[in-house]
């Protein structure tokens, strides 16, 4: 399988701040990838780099084997739904579809009109008068009808109510089932991604914390609890992701490819949400550890 998105040491700097730093990823085709992280972690930067709206400060990025936005053909293969799903407020839905057909070589008008029809939208309605959910659906329609090999979606459901959110994800998954398109979907809401993603990238503080297939990640992470002990006594093949201790008890979240044989541990499997939250809080813990040292300097 070829990579739909491949980055090498990718970084993006704004002034003195790194929005994304030293990011190396290779995402295989045929997945629905969840790009998760808190707000400001670099998700939007990553997606805008992938679609060519931003240029990298360091490293390289290839999307479907080419530099982003390098040619009309490359642009035509990537569907993008931007954050807050922008649309031309004064143009009607039909005019947006015209735009799609004029600007994209492989535009599928049938798919577009059929979807608008299924959604019960009036093609003559102006985009400015659509609800957030309807506008998101319009943006998805535009991205789908260009017949992309890869769909990139930046927080498409963040501003939607639960019903619109569900409807949007249903539409998206139908498209995946029907056209076999690869998807990268960013969100800070874990619950949205749990159902739809089979590949996970956790982005925190401009860094990629973990990336891999969800089923593999869930199988290789375990929650251990037992008598209090120092995590450094664990076997070398068990990496501690998250830990908490009381005076008597230790609870660890470890990553290992090997079975856990130590009978002193009570081992429980973890959920998608546990996994994501563990990697997100890992970043916060490291920050806490760094704080006393900074305090001395200042």
């Amino acid at each position: 399988m070829t990579a739909v998105l491949e980055t090498m040491g990718l970084g993006k700097q704004y002034g003195r701040r790194w929005a994304l730093h030293d990011c190396t990823l290779s995402i295989p085709a045929g997945n629905v990838v969840g790009l998760v992280g808190p707000n400001g972690a670099g998700k939007t930067t990553m997606l805008q780099l992938a679609v060519g709206l931003l240029a990298p400060t360091t490293g390289s990025i290839a999307v479907l084997g080419d530099a982003p936005a390098s040619s009309p053909a490359q642009l035509g293969k990537v569907g993008f739904v931007a954050q807050d799903t922008p649309a031309y407020a004064r143009l009607s839905i039909a005019q947006h579809l015209h735009m799609g057909s004029w600007l994209n070589p492989d535009w599928d008008d049938e798919v577009a009109t059929q979807r608008i029809d299924q959604l019960g939208l009036d093609p003559k309605q102006r985009a400015g008068s659509l609800s957030g959910g309807q506008r998101a659906q319009l943006a998805l329609t535009l991205a789908i009808a260009k017949r992309p090999e890869l769909l990139l979606l930046d927080e498409p459901v963040a501003s939607l109510d639960p019903l619109a959110r569900r409807e949007f994800l249903q539409s998206l998954m139908e498209v995946v089932a029907e056209h076999g398109v690869s998807v990268v979907l960013s969100s800070h809401l874990v619950s949205d991604l749990e159902r739809v993603c089979d590949y996970l990238v956790v982005l925190v503080d401009s860094h990629v914390r973990v990336a891999g297939e969800v089923s593999e990640l869930l199988a290789s992470h375990h929650r251990l609890s037992g008598l209090r002990r120092n995590p450094s006594t664990l076997p070398a093949n068990q990496e501690v992701i998250e830990q908490s201790h009381t005076d008597k008890q230790s609870t660890l979240l470890v990553r290992t490819e090997e079975p856990i044989l130590d009978p002193n541990w009570t081992v429980t499997p973890i959920t998608f949400e546990d996994l994501v939250l563990a990697y997100m809080s890992q970043a916060r813990d490291t920050k806490h550890l760094g704080r006393p040292a900074l305090g001395v300097v200042s």
Partner: peptide, 17 residues
């Protein structure tokens, strides 16, 4: 201002064109 450049520049048309 309206953010639509993210829509316009991700269609199958290069920015130069």
């Amino acid at each position: 201002e309206t953010g639509t450049y993210r829509l316009a520049w991700t269609q199958g048309v290069t920015r130069t064109r």
